[in-house]
Simulated assay, not measured.
Amino acid sequence: MAVHLKCLSHTPLRGLNDPGADVTAEVDRALARARAEVEAFDPELIVIFAPDHYNGLFYDLMPPFVLATEAISVGDYMTTPGPLNTARDIAAQLAVHVLDHDVDLAISHRLQVDHGCAQTLEETTGSLTRYPVIPIIINSVAPPFSPYRRIRRLGEVVGQFLAGLDKRILILGSGGLSHEPPVPLIAAAPDDIRNFLIAGRNPTPEARAARQARTLAAGTIYGTPESTLTPLNPEWDQRIIDLLLDGDLAAFDRFDIAKASQEAGRSSHEIRTWVAAFAALSAFGSYTGRLDYYRPINAWIAGYGIVSAEPDAA
């Protein structure tokens, strides 16, 4: 049994908005190193904690956590459409374990996932289907949010289950760091947007294209005086990374959700996927982590980071 962790920022604008050839090449090299490490590790199972961006989950039923025994990528933002290679039997066993340990968990036997899950899988493995995977979606976009102590508990319980498996396990966290794309809030939305946020599944190709065009347009002015969106916050990002690498996960129990939105953008709450991933790793004992890459990239609306960790016993 062995375990390895990687947490990555994702961005729907990678390959669409150009941050400059030097930046693109730098990120490409960092991702190539991450993928080479995953291939060398050759996981027998991947557990990925990821958000959804109103593609699979909507306000008609918005659970804090969803475990998928079967998942299908919607193929947004240049990700591959189609089914993931889900580890159905193990996922079902994990769901029972989590519920038995007093963490309320929704279960989907056919969940639609978006770039928040698919991009990170493809960038670390080259495919949606190369390795068996269990996707766990954590609501990180649609307020109200569960407190971070619940995120940490979810991760711990998942990790306890994984520690009982005789497998090479890769834990992935996909999301964050500081960023604020043009995602609407239901409280202030006009009726047409509100209806989409409540039940907008399976949009037409034209509607999806228009949605993506708005995000691309936001990226072209992000970080400039023309943008009304909360800018990137590298200092905030570094504080988050330090807490995770130092193993100070209990600090997130005191995390102020409203303050994080103000300081780092309303989508900075995707770091809850990283918190869950590190909490899962902590179930294997003390760990050592490292920062593999970080750069604020306005054109991609992303405080873009990659971190890795392994148990000290390894």
Rank of each mutant, 00 (worst) to 15 (best):
D237R: 06
A209N: 05
V157Y: 00
F49N: 06
R201K: 13
P234W: 08
A32P: 00
G303A: 08
A142R: 13
A30G: 05
N17P: 08
E263F: 00
A91Q: 02
T204P: 07
R208F: 03
I198Q: 12
I297A: 03
P181R: 00
G285P: 03
A213S: 13
I48H: 00
A87Q: 10
I134A: 08
L245H: 05
R254D: 15
S174E: 03
L177V: 08
A87T: 02
L177C: 11
A2Y: 08
P143A: 12
R35F: 04
R254W: 03
V27F: 03
G175C: 07
R211W: 12
L177H: 02
D237Y: 07
S140K: 06
E44Y: 07
I306P: 00
A258F: 11
F284S: 08
W300A: 05
P205G: 06
A36D: 12
G200E: 10
V103L: 02
I48N: 01
D192Y: 06
A209Q: 12
I138L: 14
L216K: 11
Y77P: 04
T129V: 09
G116Y: 01
R33F: 03
T204G: 10
L105F: 01
L5E: 03
P81V: 01
G75S: 06
P63F: 09
F41K: 09
I297G: 03
G219Y: 03
S308R: 09
A213K: 14
R254L: 11
D246C: 08
S261G: 13
V38C: 04
L249K: 01
R208E: 13
D166S: 14
H269W: 08
D28I: 04
N85L: 10
P143F: 08
K167C: 05
R272P: 06
H101K: 04
D256V: 02
I301G: 00
R33T: 11
P147E: 09
P184V: 08
A258E: 15
A260I: 11
P64L: 02
A142C: 12
A283F: 04
I271H: 03
A218S: 12
A30M: 06
S73I: 08
T124D: 02
D312P: 00
D191Y: 02
V157F: 00
R208N: 09
I137F: 10
P64Y: 07
P234Y: 06
L16Q: 09
R168A: 09
R33H: 11
A50T: 13
G164F: 01
A283S: 12
D60Q: 12
A210S: 12
H109M: 11
I138N: 06
K259C: 11
K259E: 15
S140Y: 00
A71H: 02
V275C: 12
R194S: 14
R130G: 00
P63E: 03
G175M: 08
A218L: 07
L13H: 05
S286N: 14
R272H: 03
W274T: 05
R194H: 09
V3C: 10
L13C: 03
A25S: 13
A187F: 00
